[in-house]
Design a protein around this nucleic acid. Sequence first.
DNA 1: ACCTGAACACCGTTCAAGT
DNA 2: ACCTGAACACCGTTCAAGT
Lengths: 188, 188
Amino acid sequence: MDRLTMRRLAMEIGSTPMALYHHVRNKEELLVLLLDDYAARALRRPELPAHPRERIVVAAAAIHEALAACPWIVEVLTADDLMSTSALWFVEQIVDGLVECGLSPERAVHGYRAIWYYTAGEIVVRATAARRREGDDRATYREQVFGDLDPGELPRLAQVADRWAPLTGEDTYLDGLRALVAGLLVIR
Amino acid sequence: MDRLTMRRLAMEIGSTPMALYHHVRNKEELLVLLLDDYAARALRRPELPAHPRERIVVAAAAIHEALAACPWIVEVLTADDLMSTSALWFVEQIVDGLVECGLSPERAVHGYRAIWYYTAGEIVVRATAARRREGDDRATYREQVFGDLDPGELPRLAQVADRWAPLTGEDTYLDGLRALVAGLLVIR
DNA sequence: ACCTGAACACCGTTCAAGT
DNA sequence: ACCTGAACACCGTTCAAGT
């Protein structure tokens, strides 16, 4: 988001910064156009399983996959609710799947929101973690913290301290998604 | 994150930008110091229920509450894993609660990660939504999209279109958190 | 309608110099 | 050790002018 600058874009296309402002009100608008374009091209609709619960998982995973391939887009898009028109079909599948599983339309919307929070969070956290790995003195700081854990005060963390990095490096998006969906379908 | 500038900070404390660099390597380091300071002050430890499942919910909700009161911090902190030492106690409670509910230590760490993704996502999405509400032409664009929905193609969304804004405005963090925790505890 | 140049009001950071 | 001033290499955006 910060790495695209109006001036550099203008230079790369052999124009001037001000020419851009003739086609776009400001940088924000340009980013939203980029977002919509990317969404339209990257969100290919997958074949959906018949079982509504699996349909939810597949639709959410498709959104997740498109975003994971292009994490900068998340910075732009963490708006209200993934609001590119080409993404609405996926939202429909999720909401519909939840309704078919017995939720009221209202609870289905809330359920979709929870899935979106989880999905957006996974992307944002992983993206900033990856960005920070380049300037890696934060990583060594973490190692030091986990090395110095007091097993009396934080026994569980001390227990997994040496496995923390590989464990949190594993891609468990789908496991968490399945858990969340399962939990949403438990009627309390 | 962008709104704190080295130059303005220097001016406000009656100093020069360069004096700051004598105490801090760069802006990133200053932000991390701010983060740690905020975490140490804002994360007051709540009384925890005996039931491990409720303990998880209460610990996660405490983190969420501290972040919701100060959403700019999330921009800084969406690092690997909420890594202020003063937050580790909360992580311990969550991991321990999951283990007491029968998960292996490894699955408990993954479960904590899922909870963190969900929590961070909720904060980020709500924060950027709120930021965007100021320049509100994106909101009217959304209204237009939801007004023009084709009920043949997207029936569920058309069905809830007029209630979308209030529905997504509701604070359902706790509901989603409970669903996620419940799902994590279902052994498959 | 579409583009340009110069300017405004900013950034983070480096460098050489001061006490 | 701690601070300063001037400078470097950038930003997004406005404004007045050109074709």
